[in-house]
């Protein structure tokens, strides 16, 4: 007899992979359309009505392309990286409660699981940069490591502040701890925590203005300079999947998860998540890129001390 818990996880994983893949397609379309409208142009328009099939065409193109390995690259590391990049993201979604009963793995340490696997992402970027034996790739990887390690600290502190408030690391419990109405959500009780989390999420997912590991105008394409076809495609999908994870976690921790006025349910969750993703996309097409020392200064000089102060503030609130 197969363990029902295992079966549940397997089904959930398949579902999650489908969800992530579909979302990646939808988000690529959304990103290009939003970018288009920000830049006073229609965006993709040719493939299907309003270019709605464009991401599909892109995906087919990427799959059809030849996979090239640079001559001096280490093929094992080189090809391990994109695969390793994508896998932890799928696992990160397991403990996220999308709805009252829509949770794949109701873990007491759900938040820890997400943080642990999210930390793996930087390893794959490091491997990609090192394995492709390209100087630009190496610089990109070095940037990614420094950036992600630095920003993980304020991120953890921001998450910790929510854990203090709820007294739990179980994402379902955290959701239930917040009420129906927006003023009962953590974002208003702990606004600084939310801002710190959001900035760190931008940096952790390598999105502009913190897209230094792949800064196009400086490092050509950074860590994925040498990847072609689906090698690049996996990194690309992982970026969007990372955005989904980061925004889902933000929704659970700060925006009340699936709680919402009138009819709580998964639709509220998705609405909040997509709103955050929309904000991230909007930011990318609006701001210039920061420089590397500015990025680290922001983290060590501002975010870490502020996050620590925020912890003190949250403990006082909890005491009261």
């Amino acid at each position: 007899m197969i363990d029902p818990q295992l079966l549940r996880i397997l089904i959930a994983l398949v579902g999650i992979l489908g969800f992530v893949a579909l979302n990646a397609l939808a988000l690529v379309y959304a990103e290009r359309k939003i970018a288009g409208h920000v830049q006073r142009r229609p965006g993709p328009y040719e493939v299907g009505p309003h270019g709605i099939l464009q991401p599909l065409a892109d995906a087919l193109k990427l799959m059809g392309k030849q996979l090239t390995t640079p001559r001096d690259a280490d093929p094992v590391i080189f090809w391990l990286a994109p695969i390793l990049c994508f896998m932890p993201v799928a696992l990160c979604i397991l403990p996220i409660p999308f709805g009252p009963n829509l949770i794949a793995l109701d873990l007491n340490l759900g938040m820890v699981l997400i943080l642990a696997f999210a930390g793996l992402g930087v390893l794959s970027i490091c491997l990609a940069g090192w394995g492709s034996n390209n100087k630009w790739g190496l610089l990109g990887a070095a940037r990614a490591v420094a950036q992600n390690v630095a920003y993980e600290i304020p991120l953890l502190l921001a998450v910790l502040s929510v854990a203090f408030m709820t007294g739990s690391l179980n994402l379902a419990t955290i959701t239930e701890g917040q009420g129906t109405w927006p003023w009962q959500w953590n974002v208003l009780l702990n606004p600084l925590g939310f801002i710190i989390y959001f900035i760190c999420a931008l940096a952790e997912t390598n999105r502009a203005p913190f897209d230094l590991p792949e800064a196009e105008s400086e490092l050509t394409a950074g860590f994925h300079t040498e990847y072609s076809g689906m090698g690049f495609g996996l990194f690309f999908m992982a970026e969007y999947a990372n955005m989904i994870v980061a925004c889902s976690v933000a929704t659970v921790l700060f925006l009340g998860g699936w709680n919402g006025p009138f009819a709580p349910g998964w639709w509220w969750f998705l609405l909040k998540m997509y709103a955050l993703i929309f904000l991230i996309i909007q930011i990318r097409w609006t701001y210039p890129r920061v420089r590397f020392d500015q990025l680290l200064n922001l983290c060590w000089r501002w975010l870490v001390p502020l996050a620590l102060l925020n912890l003190v503030y949250v403990t006082i609130i909890v005491k009261l």
Binding site: A35, V38, Q39, R40, R41, A208, P209, D211, A215, E216, S217, R284, W285, T286, Y287, P288, R289
Partner: peptide, 16 residues
Amino acid sequence: YLLDLGAFTPILYAFG
């Protein structure tokens, strides 16, 4: 120049 600095949008305004 702004494209060099990582801001993608201004160049399209300039081209307009």
